[in-house]
Amino acid sequence: MSNLPDESQKRFIAILSKKMDLGRTLNVLGHLSVGLSNRLESDEAYYVDYQDFDGNVHPNLSHYPFIVLKADNSNKLRKVSEEAFIRGIKFTDFTSSMIEGGSVEQQKRTKETKEEDLEYLGVCLFGDTEILRDFTKKFSLYK
């Protein structure tokens, strides 16, 4: 346990549109999280197992914090996505074109939509805490 890096150095941040219902919000968060974790190198994030008193293992939870914030609209999410891209920060984003049908249909619909017409529903980032805070601090906690 003591070989782990300082957990305040890095973090995951998800920023989600406040315009979605709970089911959609959780679905978008799931897609963003799984996608982002797949983009990370094996030595970037740390995962730990928790063991309870009875010896049961609760496996593979993030050592780093996972913060969930909310955004008022698509344009604010678009700007976060653009900023992450410019800064070389690993991220995933999710738009309304990715909702209905299977992934093949969603990919086709997204490809047929101009970027400026995409409605962003969420962005998920992983990186150095101070760098992420620099451009996500204006968002409030999702409650």
Rank of each mutant, 00 (worst) to 15 (best):
Val80Tyr: 07
Glu115Ala: 08
Asn38Gly: 09
Tyr64Glu: 13
Glu82Asp: 15
Leu36Lys: 07
Ile86Arg: 15
Lys137Trp: 00
Phe53Arg: 11
Tyr50Leu: 13
Phe91Leu: 09
Gly35His: 13
Tyr120Phe: 15
Lys138Ala: 03
Gly55Trp: 06
Leu69Ala: 04
Pro59Ser: 14
Leu36Phe: 07
Lys18Trp: 00
Thr25Leu: 05
Asp43Lys: 09
Val34Ala: 13
Leu32Cys: 15
Arg39Met: 09
Thr95Lys: 06
Leu121Ala: 00
Ser103Val: 15
Cys124Glu: 11
Glu7Trp: 07
Asn38Lys: 15
Phe12Glu: 08
Ala14Gly: 10
Asn56Gly: 05
Pro5Ile: 02
Asp52Ile: 08
Thr92Ser: 12
Leu36Ile: 11
Lys10His: 14
Arg78Phe: 11
Ala84Gln: 03
Lys79Trp: 07
Leu4Ile: 04
Pro65Glu: 06
Lys70Cys: 01
Leu61His: 06
Asp49Val: 10
Asn3Pro: 03
Ile13Asn: 03
Lys111Val: 02
Gly122Lys: 01
Thr129Gly: 01
Asp52Tyr: 07
Val57Thr: 15
Pro5Asn: 04
Leu4Ala: 11
Leu4Arg: 10
Phe94Ser: 01
Lys108Asn: 11
Gly122Val: 04
Lys137Cys: 00
Ser81Cys: 11
Leu69Cys: 08
Asp6Ala: 10
His58Asn: 05
Leu125Cys: 06
Leu141Ala: 07
Lys76Asp: 15
Tyr142Gly: 02
Phe53Ile: 10
Ala84Thr: 08
Gly122Cys: 02
Leu4Ser: 03
Met20Thr: 07
Lys143Ser: 04
Asp93His: 10
Lys143His: 08
Asn56Gln: 10
Thr92Glu: 13
Gln106Lys: 14
Lys70Gly: 04
Glu41Arg: 13
Asp52Ser: 07
Phe139Met: 01
Ser8Glu: 09
Ser17Val: 03
Glu130Asp: 13
Gly55Glu: 08
Ser8Trp: 05
Leu77Pro: 06
Val48Ser: 04
